[in-house]
């Protein structure tokens, strides 16, 4: 699915990721401490930032893919949404996911509106459709962001700390949606929430000191010794269940 070769990312003169190569088959959970470069890696995969090296999606170099086509392959859901337009409604916001399918200069089609309705139904948030985006809670915002990504029909969705600002109940709702999406889409999950990582249960990539370590097996990552070594913190049994 995604292959990175000798990927190096810098911010100003600071090296964030140094010569990373990896191959993501279907799903991935990206872990690592704050500022370790998880989001940087994700943004590089969407061609949002400058990088050195090569990134391939389905064996095509992403630099050779037209921006609108790349958006149909992969998209990125941020942790928080900052919206300048104070009057854009939830419905209009989700509709923007269809932008990549729309003819330039023309309006959205009937099919585009149907896709929005489907996404709203799937995520059970029809009641929010006429609300202003800026009036939503963090949990609702995360749902709407997912709805937009769904209407965009990208094959791969990157979730950047989707439960970062959420209470346990809303975290559970989001976690269940992500788990469900894993059945039909490629899911790359960035998180600090080990409950979520454990529940989503994808192969794990841990980023530290500009390098990445890959854990294919769940058991090799989710054990006290590895976690203590990686995070420098002792973990007792995980408490929350997203089941």
């Amino acid at each position: 699915m995604i292959r990175c070769e000798s990927l190096t990312c810098k911010y100003d003169d600071k090296i964030i990721l140094d010569d990373i190569s990896l191959h993501i088959k279907h799903h991935l959970t990206l872990l690592g401490s704050n500022g370790s470069g998880k989001s940087t890696l994700a943004k590089a995969m969407c061609n949002l930032i400058e990088y050195k090296g090569r990134i391939y999606i389905d064996d095509k170099n992403i630099k050779d893919i037209r921006a609108k086509e790349l958006a149909k392959l992969i998209t990125y859901i941020p942790t928080k949404l900052q919206v300048y337009d104070p009057y854009i409604t939830v419905y209009e916001f989700i509709l923007l996911g269809r932008f990549v399918y729309k003819e330039s200069f023309f309006d959205y089609s009937k099919e585009d509106y149907e896709e929005v309705d489907n996404a709203l139904t799937l995520l059970s948030c029809e009641h929010l459709k006429n609300h202003n985006i800026s009036s939503l809670s963090s949990g609702e915002t995360q749902l709407i962001l997912i709805a937009q990504a769904l209407t965009q029909k990208s094959k791969i969705i990157i979730f950047d700390e989707p439960t970062a600002n959420l209470d346990p109940y809303n975290s559970k709702i989001i976690a269940q949606h992500i788990k469900k999406l894993k059945e039909s889409l490629g899911v790359i999950l960035i998180t600090h929430d080990l409950h979520l990582a454990s529940y989503i249960d994808s192969p794990t990539l841990f980023i530290a000191d500009k390098r990445a370590v890959y854990y294919e097996d769940r058991e090799k990552f989710f054990n006290e010794d590895t976690l203590k070594k990686l995070y420098g913190v002792t973990f007792k049994a995980l408490m929350v269940s997203y089941e």
Partner: peptide
């Protein structure tokens, strides 16, 4: 007007 990033994620240069 939402954000630069969201426009670029939809393929807008």
């Amino acid at each position: 007007s939402i954000s630069d990033e969201s426009a670029r994620l939809k393929g807008v240069d």
